[in-house]
Design a binder for these strands. Structure first.
Lengths: 200, 200
DNA sequence: TCAGTAGCTGACCGATCGGTCAGACTCTGG
DNA sequence: CCAGAGTCTGACCGATCGGTCAGCTACTGA
């Protein structure tokens, strides 16, 4: 049953994304993915070296955006700016990669322990610090972690909502929820909260 | 190696709570629990009918409190009161049962699908409605779901924090994050909350 | 003293997991 | 026409899973 157009590779990826998001990485067997694609388990393992390779490939785009966000946060001029960049950037990332983030739901700690995702943990920590604004203040860290985890966890529930609804709602929630950072030395600032633009 | 005092039952429960919270329900085998207790896998299955029975027993206290919270929400006089009861009640529950909630992290959807936890799903939906205040408004539902999921997800990270730090921080975050509900007929009160314009 | 029972063990079971392998099929270039 | 590459399959592997079972040990009450 060899296909003329070898699109099986991408079909496996989309099927795996659906199944991982629905029942988790560990809760999805290669047999499940093969059944959804309509091929044999061996065919899945022909296109991918192993189960983990499927995960890393389908997460790659989201991880790339996360890394670029990390770099942009590092380039922020002050903590207040870093907080703004982190908040807007993460909301955009969460909205755009809803399905991929939903994949991580559940097996997050174990998956992060894998060497392929080792650096993600460090990025996440820096993201929490930037969102908190005052990383040394427990209440600020708590707010940042709850919002980060909540958005990651919940945006898988909003797969049917349009981005134009989800994005502003999440951004408003984050803006309300995070503790504000005193800007260092406002030179001529009259607008404490600049308008929100979405850029990747 | 029969013990004089049969405390194995409770040891299994505490070991299972630790392991479930660390690696998830599915990610923990009966062998893992037995190893941590220091007995055989068969001994674990002597004290509990099956793996699910361990989970239901260790979750029972938290579920009982959740159910009583559900009843108290149902008794609220108006949506604003229901929102306040739900917010305070859930924060208290989350702080108190941090470890038990961390157990659910990950396998939540699959575990809820089990008949023993069927009613929890309905309670969770009512909890989200109460927290949202305006369940018909997408932004309100989003805020409620993100905060609910975020607190559930994140409070497992705060096992070392004291309740006196965690509880007020979470309560403040929820109060800031949730969209306020217009009280039905304010006798003499003016709106104490700052205006937040999030209309869809 | 001794039968009964609670507590526990090692051996074992069928099912399922991720992964391997030899071979078969189709298509294409020489 | 045919060799070879790309694609896919069924059969199979060892490991691990949740769960069962017969039997051993130590204690207890009659």
């Amino acid at each position: 049953m060899a296909r003329a157009v070898p699109e099986t590779h991408d079909e496996i990826l989309t099927a795996a994304t659906r199944r991982f998001a629905a029942t988790g990485y560990r809760g999805t067997s290669l047999q499940d993915i093969a059944r959804e694609v309509g091929c044999s388990k061996a065919a899945v393992l022909y296109h991918f070296a192993n189960k983990e390779a499927i995960l890393t490939e389908l997460m790659a785009p989201a991880i790339a955006v996360l890394q670029s966000l990390d770099e942009r946060i590092a380039l922020a001029t002050d903590p207040a700016d870093a907080q703004r960049v982190a908040a807007e950037g993460f909301v955009n990332l969460a909205v755009r990669f809803r399905r991929e983030i939903a994949v991580l739901r559940g097996d997050f700690p174990e998956l992060l322990a894998q060497p392929a995702f080792a650096h993600i943990q460090r990025i996440s920590e820096r993201l929490v610090d930037a969102l908190a604004g005052h990383p040394e203040r427990p209440s600020a860290r708590i707010a940042a972690l709850v919002l980060l985890a909540g958005i990651s966890e919940a945006c898988g529930e909003f797969l049917d909502l349009g981005e134009e609804v989800l994005r502003p709602a999440l951004l408003a929630l984050v803006t309300r929820g995070l503790e504000p950072v005193d800007r260092p030395a406002p030179p001529h600032s009259s607008t404490p909260v600049p308008p929100i633009h979405t850029e990747d």
